[in-house]
């Protein structure tokens, strides 16, 4: 029975793992965007592809860059999923998963996968959500064989209580646990009924939350995506002027210039979808590195077919 539960658990995780990967680069999605046909990709991947063909790679529906929308929720799910996986992998995941069917799963074990976590500018993990993640964890430890139980506890946070701690943000919903005799009053902030003797504490929490909610939005710098350019209609000197304007190099033949400009615009626009976009100089540096790398690769690899 325990074994069966285990495999259901692992199978579901494998499925989720797959769903969180971008269908273009096969990595966990980095700054995900959703198309109007409801498919998700890394912002950079799909923007690059739409320069090849203006359609969704999955369902072939006509898609333009302007149709893409950020999908912050998915980004957050991925961050927390990776966090969860990271914590549980050493103890639970690695041992168990290898014994279950290995299908589609070679990717999960490679430590390189965690690179994309570094790539994203992940903000410090939200404490509250982090604690919520303990619930699947404790489920995992319940289903492992007895011998591993002790190990399991080491990887969760130091707190020893197995009880699920409900963070303060959920207190309003716990009215059922409160003394029934207490009269309920409506919280003026979140409109939830709260027992009278708790209302002050609740209100404090509520107001605190309101404040933190508003703040990050204010300081968020809004970076606007660059307009699309019809490169084929632009003269060399205009392209050079544009490159100069963006702080990019202006040497090279026509094709190099076009590729350079396009690469930068795609990267810049993908970066706009991030909560914390990197600085312009970092983007320029990345473009230059990519260009140099491609130049190196191009020589030996073109020998083969046609």
């Amino acid at each position: 029975m325990k074994g069966a539960l285990n495999s259901i658990f692992i199978y579901s995780l494998q499925h989720i793992d797959k769903l969180l990967q971008c269908g273009i680069c096969y990595e966990y999605m980095n700054t995900s965007v959703i198309t109007s046909c409801s498919h998700n990709y890394c912002s950079l991947c799909i923007r690059k592809y739409l320069h090849y063909k203006t359609q969704c790679p999955t369902c072939f529906e006509e898609t333009f860059e302007k149709d893409l929308r950020k999908n912050n929720l998915l980004d957050e799910i991925i961050i927390h999923y990776l966090n969860f996986k990271d914590k549980s992998e050493k103890k639970f995941y690695q041992k168990e998963i290898l014994t279950v069917e290995n299908r589609n799963f070679e990717n999960v074990h490679s430590p390189n996968n965690f690179e994309c976590k570094k790539k994203q500018n992940v903000p410090d993990t939200n404490e509250i959500l982090d604690k919520n993640l303990e619930s699947p964890m404790s489920m995992a430890s319940n289903t492992t064989p007895r011998g591993q139980k002790n190990d399991q506890q080491n990887i969760s946070t130091p707190s020893t209580s197995t009880e699920l701690r409900i963070p303060s943000m959920f207190t309003p919903k716990r009215k059922g646990f409160q003394n029934e005799e207490n009269e309920l009053v409506e919280c003026p902030v979140c409109k939830v009924d709260v027992p009278q003797n708790n209302i002050n504490k609740h209100l404090d929490d509520c107001l605190k939350r309101e404040n933190t909610k508003v703040q990050p939005k204010k300081c968020e710098p809004k970076r606007k995506p660059l307009p699309k350019l019809v490169l084929s209609l632009m003269k060399d000197n205009i392209i050079r002027k544009k490159l100069k304007e963006f702080g990019l190099l202006t040497q090279g033949d026509r094709k190099t210039l076009e590729t350079r400009l396009q690469r930068y615009i795609i990267l810049y626009n993908a970066e706009c979808d991030k909560i914390n976009p990197r600085s312009i100089s970092e983007l320029i540096k990345q473009c230059e590195e990519e260009e140099n790398l491609e130049r190196k690769i191009q020589k030996p690899s073109n020998v083969n077919i046609l």
Binding site: I24, C25, Y26, E27, N102, R103, N104, E106, N107, N112, L293, K296, I297, P300
Partner: peptide, 19 residues
Amino acid sequence: MAALPRRIIKETQRLMQEP
């Protein structure tokens, strides 16, 4: 040679493991 995209590595691994 350098910088083989992860996707190619993954596809290759899977082709070898589950032909």
